[in-house]
Computed example of a mutant assay.
Amino acid sequence: MLDYDREADAYDSSRGGEPRAEAAAAAVLGLVPDRPGRLLDVACGTGIVTRRLAAARPGLRVTGADLSPAMARRAAARLPGAVLRADCRRLPCADAVLDAVTSIWLLHLLTDPADVRAVVAECARVLRPGGVYVTTVDKAAAHDVGSDIDAVLAPRPRRPARDAADAVTAHAAGQGLVPVGQASFRGLGQGRSPRDTVADLRRGWFTMLPPGDPRTEELAARLARLPDQDRRRPDPVFRLRAYRKPAPGA
């Protein structure tokens, strides 16, 4: 996993910046009921999406939470007084106090299925009856856009997708949450170019291919032979799922 304290300063610029954040926030808010309440953005990172959630819904009291000190500091600069450091597996919230919880680009980072279950369980615990949990799913698959880069990378080893939509839905059901919607948004500015993909390979962004591994260099060589080395291929399309905590007797 990346060192998010070290990545914090360059995180936004390397991942689509404000255009991607705007698209993400709009899609999330399409799944959150438009009424006053409290929303917690779990693993909020730099707060680039969290800030937009707060600005778009003045009736929502939006708080961000992140475990990384550097990420939390950047988020706090965007949302003064509304960011806390917290482990998403043990949220510092009482039961049933929030109207919405979001986790954007979080579950795919968790390698242990028990951690995914713990996060979903915590998000369910802190929701009021009628509250909604919104999360990204199938993060890795979003980047497979049918390009020539994808064709080169197809043989690479992959770890199981802990954020697979069916698995997340099963975890949610285990906590009494029911599916209530889904959406998608484009990761604007995140399309891969061959040259950038080679750099990502060599810095270890493809988690099953460590830098210096012969397989890494073989793929890098094949990518280097593709045409249009600096042309970005299509942007990824990210998927969201929403789950509601039923009211008693519903």
Rank of each mutant, 00 (worst) to 15 (best):
Y4Q: 01
D5G: 04
E7R: 03
S13G: 06
S14F: 06
R15W: 09
L29E: 12
G30M: 12
G37Q: 10
A56D: 14
R57Y: 04
G64K: 00
A65L: 14
A76D: 14
A77W: 10
R78T: 03
R78Q: 09
A82M: 11
A86L: 02
V97Y: 10
A100Q: 13
T102E: 15
L106G: 01
L107G: 02
H108K: 11
A114P: 07
D115G: 05
V116Y: 11
V116F: 13
R117F: 04
A118Y: 13
V119N: 04
G130W: 09
G131I: 03
Y133Q: 12
K139V: 05
A140N: 02
D150K: 07
A154P: 15
A154K: 04
P160H: 10
R162F: 05
A165C: 11
D166H: 08
A167S: 03
A170P: 14
G174H: 11
P179F: 09
A183V: 05
F185E: 12
R186I: 01
Q190W: 11
G191L: 06
T197H: 15
V198I: 15
F206W: 15
R222L: 15
R222G: 03
P227E: 08
D228P: 08
D230C: 02
R232V: 01
P234M: 10
A247Q: 13
